[in-house]
Design a protein around this nucleic acid. Structure first.
Length: 500
RNA sequence: GCCCCUGUCGUCUAGCCCGGCCUAGGACAUCGCCCUUUCAAGGCGGCAACACGGGUUCGAAUCCCGUCGGGGGCGCCA
């Protein structure tokens, strides 16, 4: 089924921590590109930095990407015909091609110590030059290098780069890009500890995995000429490159914890929908041609266009993410809303581990009503406190002011009196009673309803009472970990407080 | 310090390549109004930008140069 011009892209994170939204955007753009073009999306784990890579991070990474709704056709967990997909398992490949480059005189051993290199770099910086490797070990013959190696010296392998010339390439988002070779020193391709350097490993992997399009962050543009040089030295066809601008925080510095949530994991915990996150991430540097901006993954696949991607950095806007999240939540069916809300309600102690059918039904109704206007699911328990918490002795100033007016006292007095003998309460009854009070006292509108709201909710604002009362009445009959007080109980409490 | 990239409403952006259709469009945020017994949601409307300075041109957001701002890079990190 593999055709000659099959498009193959890859996302190649290093497992050194939780996946950042900037990386998630890169993954998403690769995925959208692949899916739109009917191509292949490869996940490759770049774990050659032994110091920082950890196995659990790889699991998190996979979990986060799957949660986002991105799937890959080849990868460490699903296999594929170009594997292995973990760089740590491809070491022999890197060594094989390094040996070839060495044999052909395109690479050489370098015995300069890190200290020497560092002082050269400092010297160059001090003189206002670009620090470029001096090429001191360039002319050490392979034979001599081998002797020194077997004598116990440590050496790294460097690629020989022409001293003059231009490296040019066409970047799918940045247009034509060129680099002066004078500013590029011979890069290390294999470290003295035997591990491949990033620039080298990527090239070997991308080439051997037949990657046709490399879509990655802007921080890699300056690596690109070195990598192109490597493709040339190895006689491989180079892929098409596309470099995405960075994602910044409000103050125009790289997005970090200071700015708020930054990891996919954290957004998930906060109750941001995967679809909303993807929708938002796709808008960082890109925008749909026209029309609706609330888009699901499949719609993004249709509309996405790399050539429309902006070259300048984008600032991450939590407000817009939240708006999109609200829109996506709204599109969810009620049972899905409940399913997503339940963990937050349980954690807040509002729902037990087991739900009776009646409880489930009630919660579904309550969630559907209360989730309106909520930025993310983690805010839901707060909203639920309107139903679960009733503390008339702790009224805030606003609520207190509302019930302290003369007309409010009149309204409440009448209301308490009319409800005193009641066994049952419901919204119809409430409507009838307020009608009577209106007729008897002449008080209407806000002056009539606002005190009653405070009496029933102990708050100055909240749900519409025609939604609130049925919900509270039904909820009071159910056995929740934290009991909901019925309207009549609430009225009794408030009347005893008013008497004081 | 040096090299490269980038600069349209507060934010994401459309328009820029192929100058006039731009009194610069959309979305988020904000403000106001409507709806509503409050809030929210929703509907309607308002405020708000071509970084600056020079050119080129009959005409520039669009082309050229410079300045300034922002970002990225300059590793035996990825």
């Amino acid at each position: 089924m593999k055709t000659e011009n099959e498009i193959r892209v890859r996302f190649a994170p290093s497992p050194t921590g939780y996946i950042h939204v900037g990386n998630a955007r890169t993954a998403l753009f690769n995925w959208l590109f692949a899916r739109q073009k009917g191509g292949v999306f490869v996940l490759r784990v770049e774990d050659t930095d032994i110091e920082r890579s950890r196995e659990e991070y790889e699991r998190n990474l996979i979990q986060d990407l799957r949660w986002l709704g991105l799937d890959w056709d080849e990868g460490p967990d699903v296999g594929g015909k170009f594997g292995p997909y973990r760089q740590s398992e491809r070491l022999d490949l890197y060594h094989r091609y390094a040996a070839k480059l060495l044999e052909e005189g395109k690479a050489y051993y370098c015995f300069c110590t890190p200290e020497e290199l560092e002082s050269q770099r400092q010297a160059a910086l001090a003189e206002g030059r670009m620090p470029v490797y001096s090429g001191r070990c360039r002319n050490i013959s392979l034979d001599e290098a081998r002797r020194r190696l077997s004598a116990g010296e440590e050496g790294a392998i460097r690629l020989k780069v022409p001293e003059e010339g231009l490296i040019q390439f066409e970047d799918l988002v940045r247009g034509p890009v060129e680099f002066d070779l004078k500013l590029i020193g011979d890069p290390i391709i294999v470290r003295s500890n035997g591990m491949p350097a990033y620039n080298y490993a990527v090239v070997v992997d991308d080439a051997l995995m037949n990657i046709t399009h490399v879509i990655r962050g802007e921080d890699h543009v300056s690596n690109t000429p070195r990598q192109i040089l490597l493709y040339q030295a190895l006689g491989w066809k180079q892929p098409v490159f596309a470099h995405l601008s960075m994602v910044m925080g409000k103050d125009n510095t790289r997005l970090s914890k200071r700015h708020g949530a930054t990891s996919v994991d954290q957004f998930r915990r906060d109750g941001i929908l995967a679809e909303a996150l993807c929708n938002y991430l796709s808008f960082l540097g890109w925008s749909p041609p026209e029309g609706n901006e609330v888009l699901r993954l499949e719609e993004l696949v249709k509309l996405f266009d790399l050539s429309r991607v902006s070259r300048s950095a984008a600032i991450f806007d939590y407000e817009k993410l939240h708006w999109l999240n609200r829109q996506h939540i709204r599109l969810l069916p009620a049972e899905k809303k409940l399913e997503l809300a339940l963990p937050y309600l349980r954690e807040a102690g509002l729902a037990g581990p087991e739900l009776s059918p009646a409880q489930r039904e009630w919660l579904e109704k309550a969630v559907t009503i209360l989730v309106e206007g909520v930025d993310k699911f983690s805010e839901l328990p707060q909203k639920f406190s309107l139903l679960f918490d009733f503390e008339p002795e702790n009224l805030d100033q606003e609520a207190r002011d509302i019930i302290q007016t003369d007309s409010a006292r009149k309204v409440l007095g009448a209301f308490i009196q009319k409800t005193s003998g009641l066994k049952e309460f419901n919204y119809e009854l409430f409507a009838a009673l307020t009608g009577e009070i209106k007729k008897e006292t002449g008080i209407k509108g806000k002056d009539l309803f606002h005190p009653l709201r405070v009496a029933l909710t102990a708050r100055a604002s909240g749900l519409e009472l025609d939604k609130f009362i049925p919900l509270v009445e039904a909820g009071a009959k159910l056995d929740f970990p934290q009991r909901i007080k019925s309207c009549l109980e609430r009225i009794a409490e408030i009347s005893s407080i008013l008497r004081k």
